[in-house]
């Protein structure tokens, strides 16, 4: 199994599953337009490597390890899309397939530089999806820029890649690592008690990509999907 196909599978599972719920192998098969039987085969292999949890009845979901790889590839993919679109002026409908090929070859170092070069974009150009956070231990993008001016060698890596809060499972907890967004939203969220380091519990998420309900500092808040995508947390181990 090549690393390219591992990455492709993990990315697909990452994109297909919502709120960390397991998805069926037939969904994956549908996505790749291949026979479910060969997907099942693949899932078993991925499970032995520790990337996914798989059971024939419940389906498949990513482990922490798998989730990290998937987010990394998705991040590279979407950064590349931005680069191809914004800098190389390649048409919007072509950037996706182009990026699909390039994402596997892009090194982590190049990815970081690309992110800074593009001034830390939030979303990809073709379908406006949010770009997953990097795994560097910064709480703002400005910090990354500043530190880079000084000396990049100092920076280590985060132990966990932060997830956006809407990716947490219902009932699970996390600690806010950073929030993306303009001054106003940032102020509003922190006024409501969502400051970095604060523990939040996701109570439920409304269907069809609706808002999520969270508990923070003893109060119950509803956050729109768009807002919740910009809040990144470190998931607490269950």
């Amino acid at each position: 199994m090549s690393s390219k196909s591992i990455e492709d599978y993990l990315k697909a599972i990452y994109l297909l599953s919502k709120n960390g719920k397991p998805i069926s192998t037939s969904e994956v098969a549908e996505h790749f337009k291949i026979a479910p039987a060969s997907v099942t085969e693949m899932m078993k292999k991925l499970a032995t490597k520790g990337y996914v949890k798989y059971s024939p009845y419940q389906g498949v979901n990513l482990t922490n390890k798998g989730s990290q790889v998937a987010q990394k590839v998705t991040r590279k993919h979407r950064l590349l899309e931005r680069f191809l679109h914004d800098v190389l002026r390649i048409k919007e409908n072509k950037v996706h397939s182009e990026a699909c090929e390039m994402e596997h070859a892009l090194s982590d170092e190049a990815e970081e530089s690309l992110c800074r070069f593009l001034k830390h974009p939030d979303r990809c150009p073709d379908d406006d999806k949010i770009i997953p956070a990097c795994d560097l231990p910064f709480s703002t993008c400005e910090e990354c820029i500043d530190l880079h001016k000084k000396d990049l060698e100092e920076s280590g890596k985060r132990e966990h890649v932060p997830l956006s809060i809407c990716q947490l499972k219902e009932g699970s907890r996390g600690r806010i690592s950073f929030i993306r967004g303009g001054h106003n939203v940032l102020q509003r969220l922190s006024d409501m008690g969502l400051t970095p380091g604060t523990e939040v519990t996701v109570v439920k998420s409304a269907p069809f990509h609706g808002p999520i309900e969270i508990l923070v500092r003893g109060s119950r808040l509803a956050l729109g999907r768009g807002v919740s995508e910009t809040i990144f947390v470190e998931a607490e181990k269950a």
Binding site: F138, S139, T140, E142, E143, D146, F178, H183, L186, Q187, S190, D191, G193, T195, P196, G197, T198, R217
Partner: peptide, 18 residues
């Protein structure tokens, strides 16, 4: 303050007030 905390100053103050 931002250099010390690596966060916007308003966030630092809001956090500390919280």
């Amino acid at each position: 303050i931002e250099d010390l905390h690596g966060q916007p100053c308003s966030t630092v103050i809001t956090s500390e007030r919280y």
